[in-house]
């Protein structure tokens, strides 16, 4: 099915796409059909900079298990450093 559900957030950082590094301003997160991953549904993240055009995008398609592991790893990495560094 197409779940259609999408989370959009504003982000600050950089990503590396087909044309090199660029600044990121948005992330779109959704669980839906992937373009490339051989699974019926994946957790998809588009790191984007709409001001740079449609190809200013870094895309990942992760299985649900991988996505949860990634989210936990991100939290663990942030928790492992002094709070002053990540405030």
């Amino acid at each position: 099915m197409c779940t259609y559900n999408t989370e959009n957030i504003a982000i600050t950082g950089s990503g590396k796409g087909a044309n090199g590094w660029f600044s990121l301003s948005d992330a779109t997160v959704y669980f839906d059909h992937p373009v490339h991953a051989m699974a019926e549904h994946t957790l998809n993240i588009d790191f984007r900079n709409p001001a740079g055009g449609p190809s200013a995008r870094v895309a990942v398609e992760l299985t649900a298990e991988s996505a949860r592991a990634l989210a936990a790893a991100i939290e663990a990495a942030l928790a492992s450093v002094p709070a002053a560094l990540v405030s």
Binding site: V35, R48, G53
Partner: peptide, 17 residues
Amino acid sequence: REAPGASPDDAAATARA
């Protein structure tokens, strides 16, 4: 309109957003 000349997956991501 949103993504002239873009690859289909980039265009779809833009349209979705």
